[in-house]
Design a protein around this nucleic acid. Sequence first.
DNA 1: TAATACATTATATTTATTCTAAACTGTTGA
DNA 2: TCAACAGTTTAGAATAAATATAATGTATTA
Lengths: 142, 142
Amino acid sequence: MAYAEQYIDKLRKSGLRPTKQRIKICKVLFNTDKTFHFTIKELVKIIENQANIKVSLATVYNTVHAFIKKGYLKEIPLNASQSYYDTNVTHHHHFFDEEENRLIDIHQDDVDEVNIKKTIPGKKIKSVEVIAKIVSDNQSQK
Amino acid sequence: MAYAEQYIDKLRKSGLRPTKQRIKICKVLFNTDKTFHFTIKELVKIIENQANIKVSLATVYNTVHAFIKKGYLKEIPLNASQSYYDTNVTHHHHFFDEEENRLIDIHQDDVDEVNIKKTIPGKKIKSVEVIAKIVSDNQSQK
DNA sequence: TAATACATTATATTTATTCTAAACTGTTGA
DNA sequence: TCAACAGTTTAGAATAAATATAATGTATTA
Ligand SMILES: [Mn+2]
Ligand SMILES: [Mn+2]
Ligand SMILES: [Zn+2]
Ligand SMILES: [Zn+2]
């Protein structure tokens, strides 16, 4: 299958050999039209549900980190005791639904360019991220 | 002293009795012109350095969380295994210096109003925060 | 095939955070 | 005054995410 080639390519470019555990991880992460957000725990659960093979936590962590380093995944800064990861590596922003603990993408086009007037000597901006926390809009009950 | 009154007031409004441990925490947090960012570990270290009294980790965590709930402190969403807290509770944004692991305030005035065109049905925006990651600007060496 | 390099895994470790339970303190009212 | 009580502090235990370790397994290649 052609898609397997892509995964092998991604793995090789990340400095990893394409083992069956890693290809399985790739399938879960990249074999879909839609990008998504996940925690390591959730990723492990998806793999367990789909797969006939066992993949250890250490391998999942290692592979995810290798992909982050290479730019195939992004880590999302959230105030939580656990990291969120994103298969959408384009520049974009997020809603974070505090009630459902869920991240929702905001396309770059949906936010005006964030213009920061302040500068720090000797430093340059590497990335700018907007996080908008959302909650239920319980309209005043008429 | 007048400032002690303020701390007692803050504590009472947070539903906490003004004990000497809690007043000590208040002094470290609020007895300064400048606001600042801190981790729990750092806060404990400051207290240890200044104080003649011992304050346990549990008390520090509990007090900080009570103040957050009341709005006297803010938690800053950062991609880290540890939480950052802010004594500046006004609406503002941040630089995060990835090399020095340091937060720097950006006044609200220094960022144009972030206008998000996307909406989520049934949800309203509670807060919008911008985090700009910064790194050393190593100019191409002439 | 044998040697070697790389991977996977179970398990241990680390570390931030939260929980627990016992000891302590300050307030109250008989 | 002082016993009872509510609330507090604390040391240490528990929890959970993340990382490290080291033994075993697998793939590559000479
Ligand atoms: Mn990480
Ligand atoms: Mn918290
Ligand atoms: Zn996203
Ligand atoms: Zn700040």
